[in-house]
């Protein structure tokens, strides 16, 4: 799987309250959540983001609440992958569980807002086309690849249980 897009760059400790504020947690509608994605940190995000674009953060991306609405809002915005120096653990787990690609990269802080970046997920290769450099990252272990291949954890469990 290879994805490519324009970068929306944020700093350290991007929390789930700014990814999707709790005032919108009275819905499970993916599109409605996407309409308010990143609203409290970047009010123009929802209107500017295009299919395939990439979010890049610093350390501890996704800290805070366990709301799965956060990765859902990002995925439903059309974002193809989130790259960060490190992720908070519940957000990391939730992203994989819903099939949002997510990758840790030490070079994340070298990536600038607006850069064009390509990510080869199978081989763990991040290529910054604007700046002309590549970085090797850890590819997903097999059981996580299976979750993503099955379009999320629930589908892979369903397959395993034979539907019931």
């Amino acid at each position: 799987m290879i994805v490519e897009g324009k970068v929306f760059k944020y700093g350290d400790n991007v929390d789930t309250d700014v990814i999707i504020p709790a005032r919108y947690l009275n819905t499970q509608d993916h599109k409605e959540l996407a309409a308010h994605c990143m609203e409290d940190i970047d009010k123009d995000f929802a209107s500017k983001v295009k299919e395939g674009d990439i979010i890049v953060g610093g350390n501890n991306f996704g800290c805070g609440s366990s709301r799965e609405h956060a990765p859902i809002a990002i995925k439903a915005s059309g974002v193809s992958i989130v790259i960060a120096k490190s992720f908070a653990r519940i957000f990391y787990r939730n992203s994989i569980n819903i099939g949002l690609a997510i990758v840790e990269c030490d070079m994340a802080d070298k990536i600038n807002n607006g850069d064009m970046v390509q990510v080869d997920l199978d081989n763990g290769l991040i290529c910054n086309k604007t700046q002309g450099w590549s970085a090797q990252v850890q590819p997903f272990p097999e059981f996580i690849q299976n979750i993503i291949k099955n379009n999320g954890y629930i589908n892979s469990v369903k397959k395993q249980l034979g539907g019931k």
Binding site: S66, R67, N94
Partner: peptide, 10 residues
């Protein structure tokens, strides 16, 4: 430990 809705559903 805290998890998300999908982990809970499974």
């Amino acid at each position: 430990s805290g998890v998300g809705s999908t982990d809970f559903a499974v």
